[in-house]
Simulated assay, not measured.
Amino acid sequence: MNILLTGGAGFIGRWVAKRLLADGHSVRILDDLSNGAEANLAEFRDNPKLKFSKGSILDESLLAQLFENDRYDICYHLGASINVQDSIDDPLTTFNNDTVGTFYILEQCRRHHVKVVFMSTCMVYDRCMDDSGINESHPIKPASPYAGAKIAAENMVLSYWHAYGLPTVVIRPFNTYGPYQKTGGEGGVVAIFVKNKLAGKTLNIYGEGTQTRDLLFVEDCARFVVEAGYSDKVNGEIVNAGLGRDISVNDLALLIAGDASRITHVEHIHPQSEIQKLLCDYSKAERLLDWKPEITLEEGIRQTEAWIRKTDLI
C-alpha cells in the first residue's frame, strides 16, 4: 500500500515506519521535526520505499499536494504536540496542532477516501478505581489542554466515520517507552530514569510517587498501531493498548535504580493534571485485532537501557 505517516520521525513514529516498511509498503513521512528528528530514520535512509517531507500538518496547501500526488491508502496520524506541561503553558499551540491539524488531515482523507488511524492517548481517561483496568467505555477527564485537544480531535475523527462513512479508528496507547525515546525533559519516565541511573544521578519523582502507570514497550505499540490500519473490524471504534499491568512510579524507580538511596521526591510540576492510577484493559484489541503485548516490563527496561548505553546519550 501507499501510506502517509504524520509524526513519523518521532519516537513511536519511527517504529511504526519500520514495521510498515518491513511489511513492504511505501511510506511518506510528514514531520515538522518539532518533536522528532531525522536521525531517528537513519536506519531506513537507503530504503527506496521511504520518502520524507519536512512540513506541518497545519500547512493545508502542502497536505493537498501530498494527497494529490501520492494517492494514499491509509493515513497513520501520529503528528501532535505531546507534552502535558507545554499544553498548560501554551494551550493554543497544542490545540492548533492536535485538533485543528487533525481536522486538516481529515478533510484531505475525506476528499481522497483514505482510512485514518488517529493516535490519541490514555491521558484522556479519568483515574482507574480498581484493578479491573480501564476499557474504552471508562469515563474521560480532560485534566490538561493536551487531553482536551485530543478528545476534541477524537470526536472529529469519529464524526467522519458517522457522517461520511470514512474509515477511521481512534487508538489510545498507554504510556509507551523504549529505544529512541528522548532521555531529557520531554522524554518518558523510563528513559529519564534509566539515563539518570547510568549517569550516576538521582532519580527524581514528582509528588509522592504512588501514582501508577501501565507501561507499553514501543515495538508492541507500533504493532498495535499498524494492525489498526490493516483491519476493517476497528473502523468507527476506539481501541486501547497497554501491558495490562500497572506499577507505581516509586516501584518503577526502584526497579530501575536497584537502590532506594538514589531516589528522591520533588514538588510536582502539574499535580492538577496527574492521573493517580492508569491500568489498561486491552481485551478489545485482543478480540478485534488479535493483539496483545509480548514484551514484559523487565525485558523492555533491559532493552531500553542497552540502547541508551549503546547510543551514549548519558
Rank of each mutant, 00 (worst) to 15 (best):
I171T: 12
G300I: 09
L58K: 06
D32M: 00
T210Q: 13
I3W: 05
T304Y: 07
D214R: 07
N69E: 15
G148N: 12
Q108S: 00
A253F: 05
Y180A: 10
I171L: 10
M129V: 15
A42D: 13
L62P: 06
N250L: 11
S120H: 06
K277C: 07
A222K: 09
K115G: 07
M1F: 02
L21T: 02
D251Y: 00
P139I: 04
G242F: 03
D59C: 06
P179A: 09
C280R: 10
T93Y: 03
A257G: 15
L203S: 14
V124C: 06
A306L: 09
A163P: 00
D232V: 08
N35V: 07
G229S: 08
R172P: 00
I12V: 15
M1R: 10
T168I: 05
L278R: 09
L63H: 10
L255Q: 01
K54S: 10
S53E: 15
Q65V: 01
W307D: 00
V194T: 08
L33W: 09
R28V: 15
V226L: 06
M156H: 13
Q65A: 12
I171H: 02
L20T: 12
V190L: 04
G165W: 09
T93K: 14
G10N: 08
D32F: 01
L166M: 11
P91N: 06
P48T: 10
G36S: 08
R309I: 14
C221H: 04
I105Q: 10
F174K: 08
D86C: 03
F11A: 11
N240C: 05
Y146G: 12
